[in-house]
Design a binder for these strands. Sequence first.
DNA 1: CGACCATGCAGAAACGTGACTGCTGCTGGG
DNA 2: CCCAGCAGCAGTCACGTTTCTGCATGGTCG
Lengths: 366, 366
Amino acid sequence: MSRAETPRRAGRQGRAGIRDVAAAAGVSITTVSDALNGKGRLPDATRRHVREVAERLGYRPSAAARTLRTGKSGLIGLTVTTYGDEPFTFTEFAYFAEMARAATSAALARGYALVILPATSRHSAVDVWSNVALDGTVVIDPSDHDPVVLELVRQGLPVVSDGRPAGTLPVTAWVDNDHEAAVLDLLDHLAAAGARRIGLLTGTTTDTYTRLSTQAYLAWCQRVGQDPVYESYPAHDPCAGAVAADRLLARPDRPDAVYGLFDPNGTDLLAAARRYGLRVPEDLLLICCSESTVYANTEPPITTLSLKPRRIGTAVIQLLIDAIEGIEHDRPIEQVIPTELIVRTSSQRRPPRTTVSPPRSPAPDN
Amino acid sequence: MSRAETPRRAGRQGRAGIRDVAAAAGVSITTVSDALNGKGRLPDATRRHVREVAERLGYRPSAAARTLRTGKSGLIGLTVTTYGDEPFTFTEFAYFAEMARAATSAALARGYALVILPATSRHSAVDVWSNVALDGTVVIDPSDHDPVVLELVRQGLPVVSDGRPAGTLPVTAWVDNDHEAAVLDLLDHLAAAGARRIGLLTGTTTDTYTRLSTQAYLAWCQRVGQDPVYESYPAHDPCAGAVAADRLLARPDRPDAVYGLFDPNGTDLLAAARRYGLRVPEDLLLICCSESTVYANTEPPITTLSLKPRRIGTAVIQLLIDAIEGIEHDRPIEQVIPTELIVRTSSQRRPPRTTVSPPRSPAPDN
DNA sequence: CGACCATGCAGAAACGTGACTGCTGCTGGG
DNA sequence: CCCAGCAGCAGTCACGTTTCTGCATGGTCG
């Protein structure tokens, strides 16, 4: 009683606390808390009065205190694979941006915010990971024994991964495309368009996407009895892609159709084809995996495989928030998102129509 | 004493607390805190012992409790302009992605993490803004009397904006390009290449970038005595850009050079030029403002104006963290980042060389 | 030999909120 | 008329840190 009487330096160089509101409204802090959070049993008059006073004082509850008390921060970590100092790589650019955009939107709609965090725990002098209170984490393409993921699950935090986890990584759930099916379907499409020898532009990295896609290509080749024709390059190096595209078309066993696994491969292959005087699609059929809309307006427009990053981003967030809020599914959830082959001129020997291409559409659902 | 004796349910269904470490190490929690944070006066033996025990128990300090106690969360808000439900618009896509990438990297290097937040306070049922403890905020292109910014500065939080604030918005600091100078320089470049009538593809929105750029265009026209030739469209609609590009080239007073303010304008204008049988650059000179590297490999390659988003993102973060950490500059800081005109074939009547274009460079500093 | 100081550590008070417990006065039924 | 029950609210603890204050102990110097 003796200390409680001190009027508490009201808003001393900072925001008003719940105590200031209680004092100003002539009630206890319990009543303030209950009134603002819609709990307890209070008459509407008191509730309105307290809310009015809180509004007048510009009271905002301390997020830190609430987090400490409730154990929920409303924050979701989003790890991005880092090469060197930069978060997310050049080749993943459009994909990651689209995926992050959808994830951000989905998280905000459910009252959560995303925190961008590095894939490595020791990115700077202080460990940013342990400095932020997370309710859960989304990891993109985690490696086999990702130490960050292991540490997070050890702490009991739900972890959902974009891309099926390699090895025995104990994630709460994952979302991925069916990469084998996508590649097989796409190769059949090229073969149906008249391709006799299909080449592949792939990466030297061992991530799941590259590995599964390449394996599917090799399996397809074996099935139809074609010798594999492919070039690998470090996908994080934007220069190397153009060089590898050139190498692929310079081979003695030059393919008459190429699938490029990474986003810039389309323009790379197109430029290389021009250098060798190859017409697309007459001499060379072309498909690349990309989310970029520029391929709708290239000369010629290029067929792309979309991994539907927006659907993936949304799905990942829904699964994670369900896990956070205890909407428990019993066993590890695996969700497979279908890909979409956006067929354009570059993969068709007979372009369906020779009219001018209309202005590109907004592509509402990729 | 009576209560302190209870061994504190060690790590009951959660992480070990500082008290568990203290008990296990046989010291007080003060000693643990000092040992781990490098404070106080402790012999190295004690320090090492405590760290060992903490490591063994897998102790991680609670970020929420630390934030509550110290008042610093290590989190920086990043607002993105939302159109409809989606964070950041299509036209700002590459710019925003690059800028956010650099900002993320710069923040992590100084021990801070970025939280992506919506520009509007009421994006969902709960107010995400008041649910997260921020040390400061980066706002991109704030509107004249942005209520979020006003609320933040009222709370005493530092706010740094990307784009000079309109009106009397009380930001702590801002970073921007010199848009007038960039446009004037670019128009001179086109005129020097032989352009007689330069057109503009601009937006209907009233943001600072669009406004300043358009004003500079009009001022340049007046100076050289050319009638302005421009088309406006809602920049957030990806379809409208293609239509506006078509409209611009369909005019009776068709320009022989065009500058497009937004990222997709390059491919839009190129497609429109093809439809009207205009050769680039022989019949039509082309420049657009873009950060995308696809314009290095289009047919022909298109000259672009880069706003240097990575330098802007880095600068914004440095100014903000300086403000947070009390490295005070006395008055509102304004930092102007120069733009860069990346000259390619589309803006040169005589292409400097007709050799094949080499694989594009990694563009280390845009 | 006694006073003083540096060293090594423990106790306890915050930080601001949420939630449990419990106290008071009023009302209605037996 | 009395007591059970409930509405309406206040007190108090706990969340897990950081940090201020302060108490011992042992060594040193006048």
